[in-house]
C-alpha cells in the first residue's frame, strides 16, 4: 500500500511541476503539456490514491468481520490503521496459521 501511495505522491509532484511551469511561463508548450499530460498524470495519481483508500477500507472491514466471526472484540479502526506501513504489508502477505 505505501509503495502505491509513494508512487501516487511522486506522480502528483510531476503533475504539479507541469502546472506550475505553465502558470509561470504561459507559452504554448508548457500550457499544452499542463492541460494534457499534466492532467492525465494528476488524475492517475488521484486514482491510485482513491484505489488505495478503497482497498484500505475493505481491509479494515474484512478484519472487523473476521474478528466478529472468531468472537473476538472488534478491533478499533484507528488501532487497525495505526501500524507501520512495512508491518502492514508483512501482515497482509503472511499466510494464515493452520487451524485458524
Amino acid at each position: 500500500m505505501s509503495k502505491w501511495l509513494r508512487a501516487s505522491a511522486v506522480l502528483t509532484l510531476v503533475a504539479l511541476a507541469m502546472m506550475v511551469w505553465s502558470v509561470l511561463r504561459p507559452t504554448p508548450l508548457p500550457v499544452m503539456l499542463a492541460m494534457s499530460f499534466g492532467q492525465a498524470v494528476g488524475t492517475a495519481a488521484f486514482g491510485i490514491y482513491g484505489w488505495v483508500v478503497l482497498a484500505d477500507l475493505r481491509r479494515i472491514r474484512r478484519d472487523a468481520k473476521r474478528a466478529q466471526e472468531l468472537g473476538l472484540a472488534e478491533p478499533a479502526a484507528e488501532a487497525a490503521a495505526d501500524i507501520e506501513p512495512a508491518a502492514a504489508e508483512a501482515a497482509a502477505t503472511k499466510p494464515p496459521e493452520p487451524g485458524s
Binding site: 505522491a9 502528483t12 492541460m35
Partner: peptide, 20 residues
C-alpha cells in the same frame, strides 16, 4: 495525503487551467 494528493492539486488544476 488527502490534502496533498486530492484537495490542493485539484485546486491547482482548476485555477491553473483557468489561468492557462
Amino acid at each position: 495525503l488527502l490534502l496533498g494528493i486530492g484537495v490542493f492539486p485539484l485546486t491547482t488544476a482548476g485555477s491553473g487551467n483557468y489561468a492557462g
